[in-house]
Design a protein around this nucleic acid. Structure first.
Lengths: 203, 203
DNA sequence: ATATTAATTAATCAGTGTTTAATTATATAG
DNA sequence: CTATATAATTAAACACTGATTAATTAATAT
């Protein structure tokens, strides 16, 4: 056929990514395949290759949407409060979002690109933005000229948050430890530590 | 054939897991397949199903060995020093080990079992032991009867460490941030925070 | 030497990602 | 309004994958 004017290209892309999302939500990344996506949207597998470079590309675009949802939630945080409150709110939304879409979040760190292939800019940009929120939250704790220390400490917090979320969604945490409580402790203690030491003493 | 007395069953299991390790080191988990393992050890793919339940079982056993290597390294840490020194040593070995075997470490969190299938006890036990080291390191900071708080804080540290290691090996950290430096900051600030607040105030 | 047992494999099955040629619906030109 | 060109869609093919099966073959017991 030619374009069967059933759906436009953008519509088709939307359908495909949505179908992929639903499959991953129910069956995990393992259950995702081109043929399954195709059958769900009433097209053949080959059509997907007009919309995406390959399955990796499709997965990256799906994961980018997952990140977008988290970014959207993070944007609603009030950054005018004191750093700890802001960061707690940020971390809370992070954990809440991940907890509501565990399958999708799992897909983010279960997926890996083949050997030498790097994640595209539009994907990396999203993770960078996420990190940016952490930086913005703790910014008041640092003096001008300490940007390097600021980025460093935000990186630690971001990676730590990532670890808690990862272990929680992969169900590798003991049941009696809620990720929310772990994150609260992380933020409180880490910031208290930053304050008690001067934050710029990171030999 | 029957057992071709070329290798004993334990030898064969060793060969298979070693071959799997080498493949994952060079090509990542994506490059691992039953046929590739089999051809490397000079047997057919079917033979592997006499040694392992399935490929997931094989991967779990390979990952368990990766954890064993880390456990072995952690056992050499001197736990008679003060908590921060001990924990820094522990975390240092953690990051060092992961940094030396990034492919193998990646396999640990890239792998996931199908839908309802849980990790076997002998696997979970290893992760529990690893967590136990963190508990042992910060134990002196807690009074008797605070075991719950102890486990809680150790969990935070362990998950945070995991996050840094994960992002580092997946090359999702900015190049100018070494995982060693991130981990040092994590341990120092978190412990400082624990001390500055009373450690048992974790509502 | 024969019968039994069990390890090993080749063949097979259903599934995968991806590419190709063939088909077909739309858009364009005459 | 028809003929042509264009481009989307698909069915089929290819080379893989994990896993199962029947057939084969080597070691063991009789």
């Amino acid at each position: 056929m030619a374009r069967r004017s059933d759906h436009s290209r953008p519509q088709l892309l939307e359908l495909a990514l949505d179908a992929a999302r639903k499959i991953v939500l129910k069956q995990g990344l393992r259950g995702l395949s081109t043929r399954r996506i195709a059958s769900r949207i009433g097209y053949s597998a080959g059509t997907l290759y007009q919309l995406f470079d390959d399955l990796d590309d499709l997965i990256l675009r799906m994961n980018a949407r997952t990140l977008d949802g988290l970014l959207k939630s993070c944007r609603e945080v009030d950054f005018s409060m004191e750093p700890e409150v802001t960061l707690q709110n940020l971390a809370g939304r992070y954990i809440e979002y991940v907890g509501r879409n565990p399958g999708l979040w799992n897909a983010i760190f279960e997926h890996s690109l083949p050997d030498g292939r790097a994640a595209p800019d539009w994907y990396v940009e999203r993770t960078r933005q996420l990190l940016g929120f952490a930086e913005k939250a703790i910014e008041p704790l640092f003096a001008a000229g300490e940007e390097q220390a600021l980025r460093h400490e935000a990186h630690v917090l971001w990676a730590a948050l990532y670890g808690i979320a990862a272990l929680a969604t992969a169900q590798k945490l003991t049941a009696d430890e809620s990720p929310e409580a772990l994150v609260r402790s992380l933020v409180r203690n880490y910031l208290a530590g930053l304050r008690s030491q001067g934050r710029n003493s990171r030999l």
